[in-house]
Amino acid sequence: MSHPSFPHRLFVRNFVLIFFLFAVFALSPAPLALAADSTNMKTLTAEELLHLLSSPAKPLLFQVGSHMLYMQAHIPGSEYIGAGNTPDGLQRLNARVSKLPKKTAIVLYCGCCPWSHCPNVNPAYDALTQLGFTNVKVLYIAGNFGSDWADKGYPVAKGE
């Protein structure tokens, strides 16, 4: 009985390794969450936003999630616009930006639920880009506003 040649064994080993890595990617929820980024939204991290907010060139910050969430906790200085998945929310967004220059820096955020399930940021982002705004970004919140912002000790305000 002949033993497999060295190149053959190397091939089998590499195949097993690649298969294992593929399985990990396929079974992990992380790639699914990242798949939500396959839309054309430009995103920024919490750290990047905090840096921006402490700079002279502060962007406008719009919360496009539920009012209930905003009442409990929101990023100081952010404006409640309305849920991006509702006609009312989009109408309010349109009204808010109607007189702004198209180059205005705007950051949208929600955090109602995991990034890949958020129903609000995509429609709000699309609405602004369709209106011609060229400097719009979305705060990437992986899980929710509680876990990924408030619980990390980042600044939070309450109420209207």
Partner: peptide
């Protein structure tokens, strides 16, 4: 209930 800052 400690804040419902994300669902469920």
């Amino acid at each position: 209930y400690g804040g419902i800052l994300g669902l469920p």
